[in-house]
């Protein structure tokens, strides 16, 4: 047991939490913006996977990590647009279209990986690059906290910055106002001349771009290669984080950190003698428990009033 606490209260663990939170946080922001516009994007998982592979291939070919990132983000945005095209122009169900994208991404990335890299499992034959780590001056001097906060991949800072930007975007800008209006009452938006379709297109494209950042981080920061199904459900965890966070940027960040915590925990616990399969289950179990707690908190209010009533009756 003391081993366990040694792990949790170590500097390395704190650092790891931020590291594993990054992709979830990007994807959660992607989930948030599409949710606000009333077209929930459950293709985040597939988009991240596609973007992760794109980043590896382009950075290897161009020998530039920056171009790799750019390509990954553009690819994510394009897949977002594709989903919008299916859902908004061709009127397919947005959930079904997203499932299709997820399935295509699963198989398609392996296929492309094989064609380009000659291997069906991992991209080790490709000389891909990683994005730089950043040491923050001054902060890195602070004991303990410095080692937790400084020295992360540039995208980790980007992810937390995106929470702030998302907040400003959604609550302060005209487009943000329109996105919220479209998500809540599309008829109202329509009646004042806002094009619902255009707004939802923009939201899904941005959602794809954010998933693109998350995907690029997976293969060019978190690790330095692409491997089959490397996102491992993070796109779905992000959806849960967004919903549990009450569909606000701050809330989604808090719940993303929670999931990041459990993810990091599962990584660390592998060093103890706990079966790996059990440990790998933890983040997902946390998702389920999180959702249960979320649902329970909604019924608590009724219980409280019930108790109040009973007390009144006794008097």
């Amino acid at each position: 047991m003391s081993n366990f606490f040694n792990i949790i209260f170590s500097v390395d663990f704190g650092y790891a939490v931020l590291r594993v939170t990054t992709p979830i946080l990007f994807a959660a922001m992607g989930a948030l913006i599409s949710d606000k516009a009333g077209v929930i994007n459950i293709a985040l998982e597939g988009m991240m996977l596609i973007a992760a592979l794109t980043g590896v291939i382009v950075s290897a070919l161009a020998q530039s990590a920056g171009l790799g990132l750019l390509a990954a983000v553009i690819m994510g945005a394009l897949v977002g647009m594709l989903l919008a095209y299916f859902a908004l122009n061709l009127k397919t169900d947005v959930i079904l279209a997203a499932i299709a994208i997820n399935l295509i991404a699963m198989g398609g990335t392996v296929f492309v990986l094989f064609v380009v890299g000659g291997d069906k499992g991992i991209s080790s034959s490709l000389p891909s690059l990683v994005l730089p780590k950043v040491t923050i001056p001054l902060i890195n001097k602070i004991p303990v906290l410095g080692s937790i906060l400084s020295g992360h991949n540039i995208l980790t800072y980007g992810a937390f910055l995106s929470v702030y930007l998302m907040y400003i975007f959604i609550y302060k800008t005209p487009l943000g106002l329109r996105i919220r209006a479209v998500g809540e009452n599309p008829h109202a938006a329509d009646s004042v001349g806002i094009s619902v379709k255009k707004v939802q297109y923009i939201a899904l494209t941005l959602s794809g771009a954010l998933a693109g950042f998350g995907g690029a981080y997976m293969s060019m920061g978190y690790v330095s290669w692409f491997s089959k199904n490397m996102t491992a459900g993070r796109g779905f965890i992000a959806l849960a984080a967004e919903a549990m966070g009450g569909a606000t940027p701050q809330g989604a960040m808090a719940t993303s950190l929670l999931f990041g915590f459990f993810d990091a925990l599962s990584n660390s616990l592998q060093s103890l003698r706990i079966p790996a399969e059990f440990v790998q289950m933890i983040p997902y179990l946390a998702t389920v428990i999180g959702l249960v707690i979320y649902a329970a908190s909604k019924t608590r209010q009724i219980k409280r009033i019930q108790a109040q009533k009973e007390r009144d009756a006794q008097l």
Binding site: R178, H187, A188
Partner: peptide, 19 residues
């Protein structure tokens, strides 16, 4: 049927679309 967005304020609903 009202064409208003419930969670927005009166002013926000007023200017929606021509902010």
């Amino acid at each position: 049927h009202f064409m208003l967005v419930p969670s927005l304020t009166v002013a926000e609903n007023m200017v929606l679309g021509s902010e």
